[in-house]
Design a protein around this nucleic acid. Structure first.
Lengths: 156, 156
DNA sequence: ATGAAAGCTCAATTGAGCTTGAGATCAAGC
DNA sequence: GCTTGATCTCAAGCTCAATTGAGCTTTCAT
């Protein structure tokens, strides 16, 4: 009965620690949908706080906004996602975290070997061939390389 | 006595699996220095292979080129870095990896709790306050926020 | 001596992910 | 009713990390 079920963009921003401009940006990218007041202002569902939280966490895991959009598309359309829906989605994230930890652990092992010998040579150590591909896509235009860093290193 | 102690940019690129343009870019950013032939072509020291390797690995750890430049500045000027020098620098990386693994492990724990309750709420879970700051700086203009993501979440 | 391959510079572009105005409108408390 | 702050749209700007292209020069194996 409380009509505070709808929140303004500023509140959504405040509750998630994001900038208002970022929220609009996410909406433009299709990650979020908003209702509109008669005057044209956006009104979000309380459930969108969770949605934005998911976006932020997934981003930290190295997913691009496009990938996050794909994940979010798996949530039920029409009705508000329930706990089970979020669990299903979040489990994918968990797997990512596991993979990332595993990759880092391996990197650490190899680095330890390298620290030992002082070589720090990709060719010898293979420190590079063992990387988590997702981590590389993170920044910069490495996509232009087609994410082939591993292959290149192997032929080097 | 072999004068192959100096290598051309193409060879440096090939040996490290990077693009030639990237090497020039790194030089422009001060991460690398090159000698020049009479004709103006760059000639690198064999030791620069290690240097570029370090750049690539540090990048994967989420360091920006500027931060990497700072790390590299700790290498001895004038003489070719020896194994001990590299060990000192690499140890810093190792610490970063440790921190990253710890942060991810914590995130995973919190996510597990969230999966359990389906809440996925920053406020309740604090999933956000526990993030590795370096990871956030990774992509986008988040630096404009002054990297205050954590603080913001706390006041939210 | 020569011609292909590799290198040079410099400016422009890319792409993700936002931010920053400008100028106008909406919503709410007094 | 009025003002103040929040929102709106739309275009342009910005960072990082490179890449791309044009036009020209150097190297080196034959």
């Amino acid at each position: 009965m409380h009509r505070t079920d709808l929140i303004a963009i500023g509140e959504l921003a405040a509750r998630t620690g994001t900038a208002v401009s970022a929220i609009r940006f996410y909406e433009a990218k299709g990650l979020l949908e908003a209702l509109r007041t008669g005057g044209g202002q956006r009104r979000f569902l309380r459930a969108d706080i969770r949605r934005v939280s998911f976006i932020l966490i997934a981003q930290q895991m190295g997913l691009s906004l496009e990938e996050i959009a794909c994940e979010l598309a798996r949530l039920p359309a029409g009705r508000t996602p329930n706990a089970a829906d979020w669990t299903r989605i979040s489990t994918g994230l968990r797997a990512r975290i596991d993979a990332r930890i595993a990759a880092l652990t391996k990197t650490r092992e190899l680095l330890d070997q390298c620290i030992g010998c002082g070589c720090l040579s990709l060719k010898k150590c293979g420190l590079y061939n063992s990387q988590d591909k997702a981590a590389q896509r993170g920044a910069g235009p490495r996509y232009l390389l087609g994410d082939r860093a591993g292959e290149i290193a192997e032929t080097a």
